Simulated assay, not measured.
Amino acid sequence: MQFDIVVPLLMGCALLWWVSRGMTWTTRLTVTVVTLALIVCVVLVERASR
């Protein structure tokens, strides 16, 4: 398992859970999709620069 993918995903999920406590389900889903897309973009940029 590659930690450069797993750790950001876990941190993003934990932050999302903490922030989304007062949100509706549609808002949570939207924020989840945006957060995961940003994490994937960061990981791809990191890998491209190596």
Rank of each mutant, 00 (worst) to 15 (best):
V19L: 12
W25H: 01
T30I: 09
V31C: 13
V42P: 01
I39D: 08
E46T: 12
L15P: 00
D4R: 01
T26A: 15
L44I: 05
V42T: 08
T30S: 13
L10I: 07
C41L: 15
V40L: 15
F3K: 07
C41N: 08
C41D: 10
T27H: 11
L29M: 12
T27W: 09
Q2V: 09
L29G: 04
G22C: 02
M11S: 06
A48W: 03
S20V: 01
R47D: 08
L9Y: 07
M11C: 03
R47G: 08
W17L: 12
V45Y: 14
W17K: 08
I39F: 05
R21M: 02
L16I: 03
V33A: 03
A14M: 10
V19Q: 08
T24F: 04
V40T: 15
W17I: 11
I5C: 13
V42H: 00
R47E: 11
P8C: 08
L9D: 04
E46R: 12
T27C: 04
T26G: 10
A14L: 14
L38P: 10
S20Q: 05
L9C: 03
W18A: 14
R21F: 02
L15S: 10
I39T: 13
V6W: 07
V42C: 06
V45K: 15
A48F: 06
L16D: 01
T26L: 14
L10N: 05
L29T: 09
R21P: 00
R50N: 15
T27E: 13
V42R: 09
D4E: 13
G22D: 12
S20C: 12
V6N: 03
L36N: 08
I39L: 08
L36F: 14
M23A: 12
W25V: 02
P8H: 05
V45E: 15
W18S: 15
V43K: 06
T32P: 02
L16W: 02
C13T: 10
M11D: 10
L29V: 13
L38G: 13
L44N: 05
T35P: 00
L15A: 10
M11A: 06
I5D: 14
R21S: 13
L15K: 04
A14Y: 01
L29F: 10
W25R: 06
S49C: 04
F3L: 14
T24I: 03
G12Q: 02
L9S: 02
W17E: 11
G12E: 03
T32K: 01
W25I: 04
L10G: 09
S20N: 07
M23C: 10
W17A: 07
V7G: 00
